[in-house]
């Protein structure tokens, strides 16, 4: 083989591997966020490649809000066992004690407590100086503005107006005490890149991405899957079986399914080509208001 130029995916892969290695070499206590979604699956795959034949030299952290899809949790435990990485699970126990849930407390308060605050707790507890995440710049407008090595002050806040210059691939990884870094190795990937990479590398993902008959209820145009008995049904509401899938995964009461027949990767990729809506449309927390993602990130959200 006399290939001299890398394909687009090969180049993206190499860039991400370089970033992951830079984290391992430059920080004392890195951690990788593992949200069990497709981007996390790609990230995990890249981390295995980056350090092979060594094991991934940092733990994976899953912030469990207690309302994740059951299939996600099962997939997480299977994957951890298969690849043998260190998995840290964290749940905000104060939230559990106070019975915080998206129904009684609203999606935004629930997310603040069970996701954002939980994440801060976990990062503080582990004294992590770098947290690797699977966010991409094509996801959302404020993400499009973020550096690959994104500096956080001692209270985990992002200062979007004052980011460090980031030249070439020469990353400034230095921190003052208490500060930390969020690192996004797949910043330059698009949703389509992620799917084609999953396809060509044969990366396992949660089956919820594939169309299947599932019990759902429809609420103001959004299909919510009835994953367990905690979802309060409205008067007269009855779950019904529909063939649906998810473009993005999170907490089941806050994640909209789409009607689709795409039951395997090729169909998903073809469906995406024709799609006229963005993947975030299915995330109920992002559509609250313009700039809500930026605000959340300033508060320490990923």
């Amino acid at each position: 083989m006399t290939q001299t130029r890398l394909t687009h995916l090969q180049a993206l892969e190499a860039e991400s591997i370089e970033i992951l290695r830079e984290v391992a070499a430059s920080f004392e206590r890195p951690v990788m966020m593992y949200s069990i979604g497709k981007d996390s699956s790609v990230l995990l795959h890249l981390a295995r490649k980056a350090f092979y034949p060594s094991r991934i030299p940092f733990p994976l952290l899953h912030v469990d809000t207690t309302f994740k899809f059951r299939e996600m949790i099962a997939f997480r435990d299977r994957t951890a066992e298969e690849y043998g990485f260190d998995l840290i699970r964290h749940t905000n126990q104060d939230g559990v004690r106070d019975g915080i849930n998206p129904f009684d407390h609203g999606s935004s308060r629930y997310t603040d407590i069970m996701k954002t605050a939980a994440l801060r707790q976990a990062l503080n507890a582990g004294k992590y100086d770098a947290a690797i995440g699977g966010a991409r710049r094509d996801e959302e407008k404020s993400r499009a503005k973020e550096r690959i090595f994104s500096h956080r002050n001692a209270s985990h806040a992002w200062d979007p107006k004052n980011q460090r210059p980031e030249l070439w691939r020469t990353f400034n990884t230095r921190l003052n005490p208490g500060e930390s870094m969020r690192v996004f190795p797949i910043s330059n990937w698009t949703e389509l890149d992620v799917w084609t990479y999953i396809y060509s590398e044969n990366i396992p993902i949660v089956p919820l991405y594939f169309a299947r008959p599932r019990p759902v209820v429809e609420r103001s145009g959004t299909l919510i899957m009835v994953d367990d008995e905690r979802l309060p049904l409205l008067p007269g509401e009855r779950p019904r079986e529909e063939v649906v899938r998810f473009r993005t995964l999170g907490c089941y009461p806050l994640t909209g399914a789409i009607r689709s027949d795409a039951a395997d990767l090729p169909s998903i990729i073809m469906e995406m080509q024709a799609s006229r809506t963005s993947e975030r449309e299915g995330r109920l927390i992002d559509s609250d208001s313009v700039g809500s993602m930026e605000k959340k990130k300033q508060e320490g959200y990923f």
Partner: peptide, 19 residues
Amino acid sequence: DGLAAEREQGITIDVAYRF
């Protein structure tokens, strides 16, 4: 111009990467 401050002031403050 994805940052709140950029929209308010009608200027670009930091780089946006688009694909």
